[in-house]
Write a protein that binds this DNA or RNA. Structure first.
Lengths: 168, 168
DNA sequence: ACAAACTTTCAATATTATTTGAAACTTCAG
DNA sequence: CTGAAGTTTCAAATAATATTGAAAGTTTGT
């Protein structure tokens, strides 16, 4: 396979992969493009290479920056803005974990707290089952939360070295 | 909060949560409904409680069964089929992890293998960076894969006991 | 074999999510 | 201050995805 073809395939697949995880295709594709671009690229570059509109590129790059996966940068002598993606996959992954935890897991756990505090007869089968389910999710979520916290704070080498041994 | 209200809130939130993770809203809602139903329920029950069509319920229940999260069951004396969800959240989570690993992570790693085997000059900056990125993803993915394998095979008690200590 | 009860399928339709593009806004050099 | 270069916004258009519902298929009891 030739480099250009491989790049295209990576961008397409990363985009498809994203859609399975609730990330919009274009955002994932822009991320992919930036991941395989050694040098900073501009909005116009992205527009051209992915054939998407200026507005779309602008919005999605903004979101990627918001996630902490992409940075603005400038090139001396150029008026335009350029962008680069974090290339270290460990950092990319921990950033994503951190953000999704904050945006989705944490609020979900807060909700479980509310929901397991319903008023009503604990003898009622429905109520009993409901409270148990909510608490089960809460307990599990808290464990996952703790685990991910440590994971995110850990250094890659420590993780790969000590922890991976643990994971056989 | 009253039980009925709490149930509804849970179903809605589980549905919204699902959409952020690439799972369609109705499928997640049906799952939620089954999670909080102590007894098996029929397609008609789901239709009524969620106000969705028979076809929709049928398709989404089928998919939930395919994922291993829901089971068909029958009630003596009843002609209809009834359904129950796995209630143990640990099992639910490991099932989902197993399935998504198989459906998404494994194929992605296979692709990375192909893509890091491009022909071309390793001196070329673009090619070098590309190969490095692909291998980085592959390495990370393999680690995650291994870790999730152990997690999935582990027993909850072992996990919570021994491993959680490790995760401070 | 018949028909009632129930389940499945899928083309048409509705809904939701994404994308466009042109106008408004900002920045900067001269 | 002016206008060219660049960026952002967002209502409208489009595309992707999910849902409906009626017809076809299946199972079961008599």
């Amino acid at each position: 396979m030739k480099l250009t073809e491989a790049k295209q395939k990576f961008i397409d697949s990363w985009g498809a992969f994203g859609t399975h995880w609730g990330i919009n295709r274009t955002m994932a594709q822009i991320h992919a493009l930036l991941l395989v671009s050694p040098d900073p690229i501009s909005q116009d570059d992205v527009m051209e290479q992915l054939s998407v509109s200026r507005g779309n590129v602008n919005m999605n790059i903004r979101e990627l920056i918001d996630w902490g996966l992409v940075e603005r940068t400038s090139i001396p002598g150029e008026r335009k803005e350029f962008f680069v993606a974090e290339k270290d996959i460990w950092k990319v992954a921990t950033t994503i974990i951190k953000e999704r935890k904050r945006r989705e897991l944490d609020p979900m756990l807060k909700l479980m707290d509310q929901l397991s505090a319903i008023e009503g007869d604990k003898k009622d089968k429905e109520a009993k089952q409901f409270i148990e389910t909510m608490q089960g999710i809460k307990r599990f979520g808290n464990q996952a939360d703790k685990m991910l916290d440590v994971l995110v704070k850990a250094d890659e080498h420590w993780f790969v070295g000590s922890l991976m041994k643990f994971f056989k």
